[in-house]
Nucleic acid binder design. Structure first.
Lengths: 251, 251
DNA sequence: GTACGCCCGATAGGATCCAATCACAACCGC
DNA sequence: GCGGTTGTGATTGGATCCTATCGGGCGTAC
């Protein structure tokens, strides 16, 4: 026979790498089983999120290919992956740029997050374990004492990722992850501001969230999370200077 | 100079093709200016949505390349595009399959839609024109008289796409479009059922939606739309036979 | 002096060829 | 007879080469 090998759907996906945690985002060992595109995409994603590749800067295929010791073919694949991640903008026959978002787009992302993250939280709630919640308490505690931006961001991302850990969804988690990646730089700048101000409300919200989850109160958890994101969006809107002070795109 | 050509971000995107309408979905003329990947992706998308390529069937690169008179390189690009559209599932070193969704995943999609489409509608409302609304009335009228599934689906998609036409968003519209594509077959089967039953509630909802939009009542419009999607989800959950009677994947 | 058109370099996209990987199957040892 | 192993074919992934396209710079005409 010729065409009757494995024409049915694959048993499980298992190839989409990258968790909500930016460090392990795409560094799953299984992700690289012979897939250079994925490896390059993961590396580029890390470079973009770390700020090494600033928003608006151009990405040249040959340069990336040389850096990763590959040809331009897997680089193109990587760029497509990052485009679907929302981190790179491709223009046919022209080139690739690190995505840069306007203030309006950023507000759009936050409004999307306000709607879908509470849903994801609701879906996650029934399967959250006591270990999840204990760890979230720890993280909330550590965040309250954090003074460096990168440290806070790492804890914050792990905190929220944990809160979504019980969800059995696929697409929703991917969307949420994309939103987190796309808003990464804004959260970074915003964190800078509120760490300087020593605002406490973020930690109050985190504690309220864990409490609602512990009590199994999905409605309350949704409200707290929605408010958490909404407050951030409104705060962000009050700091338009963040959108002017973009890290400039060097060649 | 060497590196100082156009290293800034491109002025506008303008390359993401495909509207909410499945016919023009990706057939924008500008999409093909030397971009075979896009052209092939658009063709494949149409084949998948039309049912010509059934869910779960395998996609062979060489076969597609031959059909479109190209090499396998742009086919790979097309497959990546469709993967980010959620219509194709890629497994490294194994192959590509037309995405097939479980009942749980389908419910997930509808729940996502319940949350984000009302938001998109709210964002669209302020910029909707009288022409938009008049055309929506027409479409609602035609839908009430439609008796063929494809005809209804086409009108329905145009109706809702029009309701989102005022939105200045980018990402949100892409997400919504993806959800519509991924649920396309389910809507097809569901439409079959309710057309046979002669149910009127869908048309009532459509009229209520237009009325709320005319009155500029965003809150009411959101509620109606949420209920519209929610009711469909619950109806779908009551027809588990749809998930058994999948079109089989022929090689 | 300015505006238009042509030319050319650089970069992205595509074709062809080659290597790696996987699935199936037949074979051999126990 | 059965399980593990290895071989083979098909298919995907990657490298190299070639072509198309885009943008800037120069020259010329008005």
């Amino acid at each position: 026979m010729l065409g009757t090998m494995t024409d049915e759907h694959p048993t499980t996906a298992a190839t989409t790498s990258s968790s909500l945690d930016p460090d392990t985002a795409g560094n799953d060992d299984k992700g690289r089983h012979g897939n250079a595109s994925q490896r390059i995409a993961d590396g580029l994603r890390a470079s973009i999120l770390s700020g090494e590749l600033p928003a608006g800067s151009r990405i040249r295929q040959e340069e990336i290919a040389a850096r990763y010791g590959a040809s331009r073919i897997p680089v193109r694949g990587a760029l497509r992956i990052l485009e679907s991640d929302g981190l790179v903008r491709l223009v046919a026959n022209s080139g690739a740029w690190v995505a840069r978002f306007t203030r309006a787009e950023c507000e759009e992302f936050y409004q999307i997050r306000e709607r879908i993250e509470p849903l994801l939280l609701r879906m996650s709630l029934p399967c959250l374990t006591a270990e999840n919640l204990d760890r979230m308490d720890e993280l909330a505690e550590q965040m309250a004492r954090a003074d460096r931006v990168e440290h806070f961001l790492r804890l914050d991302r792990e905190f929220h990722a944990l809160s979504y850990d019980g969800a059995r969804t696929v697409v929703l988690q991917e969307i949420v992850q994309r939103m987190w990646n796309m808003t990464h730089h804004y959260r970074s700048m915003f964190t800078q501001v509120f760490l300087e101000q020593g605002s406490q409300i973020v930690h109050d919200e985190h504690r309220m969230l864990v409490r609602a989850l512990r009590e199994g109160d999905a409605e309350q958890a949704e409200l707290v999370l929605c408010g958490h994101i909404r407050r951030t969006r409104l705060q962000l809107a009050r700091h338009p200077e963040m959108f002017d002070a973009w890290p400039s795109a060097s060649g």
